[in-house]
């Protein structure tokens, strides 16, 4: 079975892949409101990710979700570096697992809230 890692793109991320081959692989979803890159992985890499992060899970769309933000950030960095959506980018991220876990531990305590007005 194939599993998917989604990387959402904001303007900053879009600028980082502009002109690269992955730019053509951007998908617009939800009526064009969201732009996303999809990295597909097999059983073995899916298991490695689930093992590495306690919160990670598979959702109803076969997407690997609830991974730390640090993992998603590293995944995007590797995509931008390798200009690919192949399994190689995930392998490169998993090679940095200790560094990511360290960052993830910090981010499990605090994430900065967006600056929007609330009641």
């Amino acid at each position: 079975m194939e599993y998917i890692l989604e990387v959402f793109l904001d303007d900053y991320r879009l600028s980082k892949i502009k002109g690269s081959p992955v730019e053509n692989q951007i998908e617009a979803v939800f009526g064009g409101e969201l732009k996303v890159l999809r990295v597909k992985v097999g059983e073995e890499l899916k298991n490695e990710i689930l093992k590495a992060f306690e919160t990670a899970r598979i959702d109803s769309r076969a997407c690997i979700t609830d991974t730390p933000v640090a993992f998603k950030r590293a995944l995007f960095e590797e995509i931008a570096k390798q200009k690919s959506l192949g399994e190689g980018v995930v392998k490169a991220v998993l090679a940095r697992i200790e560094e990511i876990k360290e960052l993830a531990a910090k981010e499990s305590e605090y994430l900065p809230p967006p600056d929007i007005e609330t009641d």
Binding site: D59, D66, L111, P114
Partner: peptide
């Protein structure tokens, strides 16, 4: 089809992306 899931939204929220109104 484009499936919604709580996990998809959690991913957006955690990365500081406001989910679109259709979500």
């Amino acid at each position: 089809k484009e499936k919604l899931s709580g996990s998809l939204i959690r991913g957006l929220v955690a990365e500081g992306v406001q989910p679109p109104v259709v979500i």
